[in-house]
Each structure stands twice: as C-alpha cells, then as structure tokens.
C-alpha cells in the first residue's frame, strides 16, 4: 500500500511473466504439495490485510453514496456511470496518457544510453557515474520537492539567476504550461538511475560467448549493441516499460508536492490519482473516490497487459 507512494516503482516487475516454473516436477514435489504455502503463507496473510482488504472495502464503498446531510444510501453502479461520464476524470487520464507517451521514452532512452556507456568499459570513472546517477533515487520526495521548487523559481530561483545572467526569458516552469514537462523532469531525475541499474544489471549477464562470436565476425560496437545487447535485454526493457506505465498512471507524488507552488496549473484533478485523493481528503467523497481508484486500477491493468503482450510477441 505504501509502495506506490514511495519512490519504489516496483510493482511493475510483477507484471512480467513469472520465471518459468522449473520443469522437473518430481515425485518429491507432489508429496509436499502444501509445503509451499508454509513459505508463501506469511506474505499472503499480510498482503491480504494491507492490499486486498482495503480493495475489497473500496469495492464495497463504491456501491454507496454518503452525503454530509442525509447519510448513506445504496446506489448500485451509479458511481461507476458517473466516473465514465466525468470530464474531470478524463482530463486527468488524458494528461497521464500524454505524460506516458513523452516522459517514459525519454527517461528510458537516457537510462539505456547510460547503461550501455557504463557497460561498454569505455568510461573513465565508471563506478562513480553508476553511483552518482543512482543517488537521486535515495532522496525522499519531500526533500526533492524542496530542491526543485527552489531551482524552478523564476524570480529568485535558479531559473531567475539564469535569466539574469544570460538575458534569456525562460518562463517560470511552475507558472506556465511548462508545468507538465517540469514534473516530467523531476520524475526523470528520480528514476533515470533506477532504470539504468536495471538495464545495466541485465547487460552484465549477456553470455560472453555471444561477444566472442561477434569479435570473430569483426562486428563494430554499434553492431554489437543493436544485434546482441538490445535483443538480449529485451526482457528488462519490457519490465522497465511496464513499470513506468504503472508509475505514470499512478502519478501523484510530484504533482501533489508541487501543487502549493503552482495551484492554478496543477488542478485538483490534474491526474486521476490526485483526483481520487482530493475527492476523499478535501471533499469527503469517499465513495466516489473509491470508484475512481478502482476504474483507474482496471485501466492500468488493461494497458500494462497489452504492452506486455506486444513486448513478448515481438520477442517470440
């Protein structure tokens, strides 16, 4: 439950197919059919408490309407009909879709290039870069917002300093239409190193024999990248993409932290997740908020599933 809020973008990986179940299902295994639950049970018990129960509760809540005056009434699927016809919900959904189409490729592209550069062995100070670029992942969101809020300041912040020095007139990223790219920049900053590490780790296990073969063929470095490295880490690329898609759909931390600095551009329905949050915390519309969360969860699953199918099919 916390995970989505923290800077772990994690769940994504779970969407990739599970590791192939080792083929040898021996007799031993049949005899101990239930032993597996002994190991998985504790996780699932806590999981049920902190994930499944709140979801079940939300499903229940989504069937009711509670008014400040008048109490609670059963409304069936009315809340769902309302979400699907709610322009504010679709405004936010459209925005995260746009974000996903632009920010995710940029971020993953940079991550991949850096991973390839570090893996190439052609860098000075390789270990330093690997750690330095990963560091932002360790910075708490509250602190990140403080830093970027300052740096984005047009009048007194770094953008202002820059304009004064060079006579440019870059508008304040937080009080203009640039606020979406500004959020994209923070997300990119936070997760470039994280994705880089995933790609880099995948590159580390490309079998040596493949390189040896390439050397014998006299392939150049670009050829090695396109013909060997990229295909070899396709799995990691798909996983990171799915990760980032879920992360985009759940975009919340960065806009919510920047909202006080840019209230007129970051509306209460800026992203679907922010909308659900505002509904329950400012408007006490718990029922409708739960419905928004469920609809968003279903949309996310559909998109992630489609991407996974496409990614895996190409591979086949």
């Amino acid at each position: 439950m916390l995970t989505p809020l923290v800077k772990e973008r994690p769940h994504l990986t779970t969407l990739a197919s599970p590791p192939a179940v080792p083929k040898t299902a021996g007799r031993m295994r049949l005899r101990t059919r239930w032993t597996g639950w002994g190991f998985v049970g504790p996780f699932m018990a806590v999981f049920a408490l902190v994930f499944l129960a709140p979801i079940a509760y939300s499903l229940w809540l989504s069937l009711f309407q509670t008014q400040l005056v008048g109490g609670t009434t059963f409304v069936g699927l009315d809340n769902y009909a309302r979400v699907l016809a709610d322009p504010q919900f679709w405004d936010g959904t459209g925005r995260v879709a746009l974000f996903l189409l632009v920010q995710v490729p940029v971020m993953l592209g940079i991550s991949l290039l850096v991973a390839l550069a570090i893996d190439s062995g052609r860098l000075y100070g390789r270990d330093f870069f690997r750690l330095a670029i990963f560091l932002p992942y360790a910075v708490p969101g509250v602190v990140a917002a403080l830093m970027w809020g300052f740096m984005y300041g047009e009048r007194f912040g770094l953008v202002g300093n820059f304009n004064d020095l060079f006579g440019t007139s870059i508008p304040d990223p937080l009080s203009s239409a640039l606020v979406l790219p500004a959020i994209g920049n923070i997300v990119t900053w936070e997760f470039v190193g994280y994705n880089m590490l995933i790609f880099y780790s995948a590159l580390r296990v490309v079998p040596t024999s493949l390189y040896e073969a390439a050397e014998i063929d006299g392939a150049g470095p670009w050829r090695v990248i396109t013909a060997i490295k990229l295909p070899a880490i396709r799995g990691a690329l798909v996983v990171a993409t799915i990760f980032s898609i879920i992360g985009s759909f759940q975009l919340f931390n960065e806009p919510s932290i920047l909202q006080p600095l840019s209230p007129n551009y970051i509306s209460t329905h800026y992203t679907p997740n922010l909308y659900a949050y505002s509904l329950s915390f400012s408007g006490q519309q718990y029922n409708y908020s739960a419905t928004v969360a469920i609809v968003m969860g279903v949309l996310t699953m559909i998109v992630a599933y489609v991407v996974q199918l496409r990614g895996m099919r190409k591979e086949a």
């Binding site: 439950m1 989505p4 769940h11 939300s58 739960a290 969360a293 968003m296």
Partner: peptide, 14 residues
C-alpha cells in the same frame, strides 16, 4: 499483480 495496479493513495482512507 491485480492488487498493485490499484492506486494506493486512493486506498488510504479505507
């Protein structure tokens, strides 16, 4: 998988 796709912030109140 299904559970993690539901935005956690929205589950905060439940």
């Amino acid at each position: 998988i299904g559970a993690v796709a539901v935005p956690g912030t929205a589950l905060a109140v439940p």
